[in-house]
Design a protein around this nucleic acid. Sequence first.
DNA 1: GCCGTTTTCGGCCCGACTGTTTTCAGTCG
Length: 589
Amino acid sequence: MTNQEIAKLLRNIATAYFIKDDKKYRFQTLAYQRAADAIESTSTQVKDLIQDDELEKLPGIGPSIQAHLLELIKTGTVEYFESILKDIPQAVFPLLDVPGFGPKKAYRLVTTFSLENPKTVIKDIEKIAKQGKIAPLDGFGEKSEQDILRGIAEFGKGVGKATRMALPYAAEIAEKLISYLKKSEEVIEAEPLGSLRRMRSTVGDIDMAVATKHPEKVIEHFIAYPYKDRIIEKGELGASLILSGGQQVDLLTQPPQRFGSLLQHFTGSKNHNIALRELALKKGYSLSERGMKKESRDGKEILEFKTEESFYKFLGMDWIPPEIREDKGEIERALKHDLPNLVELKDMKGDLHIHSAYPIEPSHDMGQTSMEDMLVKAKRLGYEYLGFSEHNPNLSKHSKSDIYSIMAKRKDKIEHISLSKKYIRVINLLETDILPSGELAMDDKALEYVDGTIVSIHSNFGMDMNKMTRRVLKGLSHPKAKILAHPTGRLINSRNGYELDWEKIFEFASANDKAIEINSFPERLDLPDTLIYEAIKYGVKFVINTDSHHEKHMDLMKYGVSVARRGWAQKHDILNTLSYNDFITWLNK
DNA sequence: GCCGTTTTCGGCCCGACTGTTTTCAGTCG
């Protein structure tokens, strides 16, 4: 059973408690949700955690849930869970993914209409609503029946909570929206919030914070946004839209003197905020997006925070970068004034994964921009060096001697260009396939024409974990293989990637001076942040690359940096923050 | 059900918004 599946089961238990009696079981509900969060966000499998006696150390897993999980891994089921779930029809759970449905509404409708099939329940509800059978029920009405139909329609189109978009697309949408918002004179400040501000790899809703003295005018301006599909809600302090592309955008406002609290509150993460509120409560303060309330005899006074810095300072801590606000120890470190100094975009001195348009007759897709133009762009980005790493020549279409000659010509070209472009250093790399056998697609003689090679998997993704791990380790053990590119092989929203034994990969990389890539491409963002966080414990070094196939892709570096920051990476963890000479020294190790 | 430099018992995060309601329940973030 995967962690994902276990987390889902725990969430179902929370839902079941909530349906049974949300007041009586309020804290059980909360506890099971927290346990689900904990399981979901750990990169080690529960089975392994049990083996190493580490399960109980996860925050939110206590003696009771630990015993249940033990039983689950051992026998495949948990008697206690079964007894709780037996009163809740299975058809309730798929509905929870539909916008507007929570546990209560789902349970009410499923039981009222005796729906039993989880596979058809959404369609069944849609049919019932269309027949007008929901509006007459107590607590429902015409409006809520229409809402249900719309929620189901949107779910079908992948709108709302069902899908999350890759970070760079969300950032683009937010940028446009911010420049629109700033056209209003009433907007004093506008910033993205939520997972977008924390730079998570995927973003659900796009949340926006605005500081203003006249929220009603800002909200009017916001809901007049020309690229909207419709308005979901509109209140005194905020509003929500669905854009024509299906993305949801939420606007939240506060007066400027409270902007710090607003930013902090809606940047989250939820767990970070819960931990902060518990901390504040001990000091006698209650937190909200408006500020802090102190309980006193004279009633309640609100403390206001114009900036996030002053907010965190008031609680006795340093300002925490949004990327690491996940309650993974950042609060304790901030209290001790001991936060890591995260890597920044300006630290980057080069990009090593560049596919130019050089006609190498590659095994995979070719770049679209000439080497010369890529170098001009690199200069503009302030880089000291650029590494060309086209895909290796296609094996099936060329003889060995063809390949040697292609590689020799390319080497001449790079040397020539290197001499003529004095403003930047050029590194001759290659992206070489690791074949299913673990052999590299290029033989030793072909690799003599490059200074080093990036290696990566582009075929046979379905291998089991042990075979795939052996394959990668064998490929990486070639002396010229220095960087493992897009290590999980995932493509966000389309492919899950293959499984690797990360402990073995990290140990090997750390011991043998091999770097792991953090790929900045929107659908990749790979290695993912949670694995970076683990890898750093092994002393693994990284390179942050863009995998550019066009000059414009080179701007994506900031997203790779944000992934690294979310994994708590500092400048010294990232090899392409090194000067050219130091980087070459590492490359030749 | 979890958790503890104020506690091994007694707490546990907070508010906005909507719809169907005459004071609240449900959903969301």
